[in-house]
Design a protein around this nucleic acid. Structure first.
Lengths: 223, 223
DNA sequence: AGAGTAGGTGTACGACGTAAGCCTGTCAAC
DNA sequence: GTTGACAGGCTTACGTCGTACACCTACTCT
């Protein structure tokens, strides 16, 4: 047995590289994801990664696809509205599980390549379509839900960052504001601080679904 | 008259630095915004910026605040729903005018410092509050609308990037997909490509507002 | 006049992405 | 069994980034 068998027992592959990059991103943040850092994570030098990944862009694309493929499909029930809710929650959970991935989505990544990563989209379209919406409205609703969920998670993560310290400080700051000009902000500020994020998410989700139900009813009544 | 009067006729200030950075970002993209590039833009060496800006983070925060302060408040009408729509459109327009700024929002920037940049928030809360919603629901609705608009713009910008070339290619790719497994995607795909983004935006906006109207009515009927 | 300071400059360091080339183990063809 | 291609590691080097540190100069205040 030679010494080279000691290291790299498992052959390095694109999948292992991306998996390592995702781990680094989750544990140390997006800015920690450098070629050198990821290489170290898999026990290799930076330039070796380029045999498995075109460049850093490609690596980040790989991370996105990997996360998409991780989507945990909720089991369907009979009411489509409940399926919407479960799907939305699953999608939010996925984004929360990899907080930095929204920043990758926010950069304009090219169209997704892998099949696995568009399965969640197909899933969502099926659910929305099962409400009786036209294909056209299904596509529109997809954008509405997708936008809401992604945007909500962005705001949510922004609020969480800085948590306790900035939390109380921002509160104190607000209280010391010009009261006449920012009365609405002052009135609502306790609810910004205290409110359960899950509850907030459900609130917006409910608005969308109620709106959709109205749209479905209206379409049905027209025949 | 000495030679030093020729350059930097206007004294360099934090505002001028941030303005230059925003200009670079809008015209050349976020990755072009480096200390050296911004310095060049104002006719100065990179290290000089540090007399007006704490570090690059601070500069980017400044860009965010500057953009927020640019918000173009729509003139109010009597129906709150229409005010919602106009406010949402104005917010979307602002984000579209500075496409890279959503990426800055997506990174978790600390709480906003400047007064001007929270005026739009106050404005939004006033509009939502004028519907008769409780302060609590107003805060929730704010998150719902804010999330939707930001998320929508992210998706929108992602689709736009690559426009024509990737457009037709993605179309062809989809058509060549496994048909049984991705039937919903195939059915909806023409509407993804063809549909007017403004119309899509209004669709989701409508869902949210209809949902909100239902909530208001329900609260009213309970007294 | 002299001191302090505000705000410019130049140099230097470490980290980044990655181009180019080198080295070695594996394996198919002869 | 030898050989040659090649897959997949490694090393070095370049240009760019943010920024620490030291320096220089022109005002301002006493």
């Amino acid at each position: 047995m030679k010494t080279n068998e000691v290291r790299s027992r498992v052959p390095l592959t694109r999948d292992r590289v991306i998996e390592a990059a995702l781990r680094v991103m989750d544990e140390e943040g997006l800015e920690a994801v450098s070629m050198r850092r990821v290489a170290r994570e898999v026990g290799v030098e930076a330039m070796s990664l380029y045999h498995h990944v075109e460049d850093k862009e490609d690596l980040l694309d790989g991370i996105c696809e990997r996360v998409m493929a991780e989507f945990d499909f909720p089991e369907p029930v009979e009411e489509w509205a409940e399926n919407c809710r479960r799907g939305a929650r699953a999608w939010r959970q996925l984004l929360q599980a990899h907080p930095a991935v929204m920043r990758l989505f926010a950069e304009q990544r090219g169209p997704i390549r892998s099949i696995d990563s568009m399965r969640p989209m197909e899933f969502a379209l099926r659910i929305l379509g099962s409400s009786g919406l036209s294909d056209r409205d299904t596509a529109q609703a997809f954008h509405a839900f997708g936008g809401y969920i992604q945007g909500f998670v962005i705001m949510e993560l922004g609020s969480i960052a800085g948590a306790d310290e900035a939390h109380t400080k921002a509160h104190a700051e607000l209280a010391a504001m010009l009261p006449d000009e920012f009365s609405a902000l002052q009135a609502c500020s306790p609810y910004f601080a205290e409110c359960d994020p899950d509850e907030q998410f459900e609130f917006g989700l409910d608005l969308l679904i109620r709106g959709l139900e109205a749209k479905v009813r209206w379409a049905d009544s027209r025949g």
